[in-house]
Each structure stands twice: as C-alpha cells, then as structure tokens.
C-alpha cells in the first residue's frame, strides 16, 4: 500500500446499478511512468471503472488510492493528482481555448501565478498554440480532443486517465495523439482505454482486459511479444489441476495461467504434449473445454478472453 512507486491502486472495486453489477471486484495497480492499456468490449465496465477511479462515481465496494491518498477519505487531495479525459470531452464551447484551460488550471487549485505558464505548456504539448484564441465550439473534432487532453494534463497530475482519446480522429491526428501519450507516459502514469488494439501494442507498457465487469487478463506488452515468438498452446480446463501437474507433462516447458481456467503452455521442441494432455485430462477429469494454438497477437488474446467467457463455467 505504501509503495511510493504506485501512483494508483484500486482494490476490490465494485459497482452495481440496481441489481446489475457493472464492475465486480476489479483490482488495478499502476506504477509511475507506466502506460496501462485498458481494453474490453463495449459494456465491459471500462468507463464505469474509470469514473470510479476519478471520483465521478462512488464505488459500491472497494477502495481507490492515488499516490497513497485515499480517494474516498480525502477526495480533494487525491483528485488534485488526477487528470481525466472522459469519453465525451467536457468542453465549454462558449469559451476560448486559453480561457478554458485557465479555468481547468484554477479548478485544479493551481496557484494564480503558475496558471499562465501551465496553460502555455499544456497548449504547446498538445499543439494548440495556433488555436489559443479560438472558441472551442469552432474547432474541429481533433482539436477539441486535444483541448480535452490539455485539460487533463494542465496541472501536471501524477496520473492521467484517458477514455478513448483517439475516437473520431483522422490517421494523422491519431499518430500525433499517440506520440503525445507516449510523451506523457514518461513523467506521468497513464491509463488509456481504447478499442484499437495496435494502439495498445504501440503505446502501452502493460495491458489489462475487462469483460463483463471483471478483470480477465493482465500482462506486460513485453511478455506478450515474447509469447508471440514461442510455440505454445492455450488450454481451457473446467476443473484445472495444480500448475505443477500441467508442467509435468512431457514436452511442456512452462505454464502461465491466464485466468482461473485458462492456461498458456510454452512448448519444447519435442515431444508434442498434445496427446498426453488430452489423455490426462480425460483420465483425471480436468474437463477440457478449449485446446488451441497459443495466441500470437493482442487481438487473439482479446477475442479468446472476451468470447470464451460465455462457454467457460
């Protein structure tokens, strides 16, 4: 809990709307200088989770702490360290870019003397200087999106949370925004929610996938890329044995649990463990429900996890 490198730590976060659980028992940790890709199909609970992380929505259970400050106990101190760009950028269309960013800086309790410098810096980073005096309502969607990002970083927060920041932008703008996010990732922690998988692979250090309100996958991009090169199998077992038992099958080099029921097996050159695996599964009643070549891309992982959930018990 007191790890100083942790900028955001959410434990057992849950949220229900009436009888429906939108988010269940989500745990999430982020270190300084890390960019976390936050994936999931529509309606998986990503936005709800982000709203809870930023104090827009009160969790039904669980806790959030930002740089060691509890968001529920000391919301003002915690929120001062947060920058948030929601799905719909919260822009006052009747203000100019400068006026709006000044307001955002003041709302985040930046001292008056620092406001102008902070606004200038944010505009420069987001490429907004030529638009400084324009009304936000008259800007194109791409520039409005940048104003939204500038708003989230103007007070130099420790954590920046961006909800689908590249939606509706053209390819050039997307590249610029991605470069900006990578730059932000150097001195802030960033949580990035998106549907665009290559974006995650190119920008993020770590990826978490949500499905139906639960966190179903969490790994580093580096590990993912490593797995791409290795030969492997993904095995789904209804009643999985201990990991050691799987590893003991001849031909299996390593076992990595993906979730409670899903395992990724890295294979040795020989022998092929597939027959032995199926045979043992039947004999020992493991309840084999899935056996497929290991996923190679994030997209495979995503599809596997978010579709398999229906058939898994």
């Amino acid at each position: 809990m007191a790890d100083p490198a942790l900028t955001i730590s959410a434990q057992g976060l849950s949220r229900s709307f009436g009888a429906r659980w939108a988010v269940r028992d989500v745990t999430l940790e982020l270190k300084r200088g890390e960019v976390l890709g936050f994936l999931g199909p529509n309606g998986a609970g990503k936005t709800t989770t982000m709203q809870m992380l930023t104090g827009n929505l009160a969790p039904s259970a669980g806790s959030v702490s930002i740089c060691g400050v509890d968001l529920l106990d000391a919301p003002k101190q915690a929120k001062a360290r947060l920058g948030y760009l929601p799905e719909v950028p919260p822009l006052y269309k009747e203000l100019t870019v400068t006026e709006y960013l000044r307001l955002a800086a003041r709302l985040h309790r930046l001292p008056k003397v620092q406001v102008q410098a902070a606004v200038d810096l944010a505009m420069e980073r987001c490429g907004l200087l030529p638009m400084a005096k324009r009304l936000i309502g008259s800007l194109s969607k791409g520039y409005q999106q940048r104003v939204g990002i500038a708003q989230a970083v103007v007070h130099q927060p420790d954590v920046v949370i961006l909800d689908e920041p590249t939606v509706g932008l053209d390819p050039n703008q997307i590249r610029e925004i991605r470069a900006l996010i990578r730059e932000l990732g150097r001195d802030h922690s960033v949580i990035l929610s998106t549907h665009i998988l290559p974006e995650v692979e190119s920008v993020c250090d770590r990826v978490q996938i949500m499905n139906e309100g639960r966190m179903v996958y969490s790994d580093t991009i580096a590990a993912l890329k490593e797995a791409r090169d290795a030969r492997g199998l993904v095995v789904g077992l209804r009643r999985p044995p201990a990991v050691g038992e799987l590893a003991a099958i001849p031909g299996v080099a390593k076992v990595a649990p993906l979730s409670e029921h899903l395992f990724r097996l890295a294979l040795q050159e020989a022998p092929d463990p597939t027959d032995a695996l199926v045979e043992r599964s039947v004999r020992l009643n493991w309840g084999l429900v899935q056996l497929s070549p290991a996923q190679t891309s994030l997209e495979d992982v995503f599809v596997q996890l978010t579709q398999r959930e229906e058939t898994a018990p």
Binding site: Q51, T54, G55, N56, P75, K76, Q77, A78, K79, A80, L82, Y84, P86, V88, P90, L91, Y92, K93, A104, L107, H108, R109, Q151
Partner: peptide
C-alpha cells in the same frame, strides 16, 4: 446534458 459536469466532478472541488 453536455457532460461537462465531469470537469467539475473530477477536479478537487466539493
């Protein structure tokens, strides 16, 4: 309606 309220809600303001 314009969802600008989230600017106020996520700022350190009660």
């Amino acid at each position: 309606r314009n969802q600008t309220i989230s600017l106020l809600l996520s700022a350190p303001v009660s």
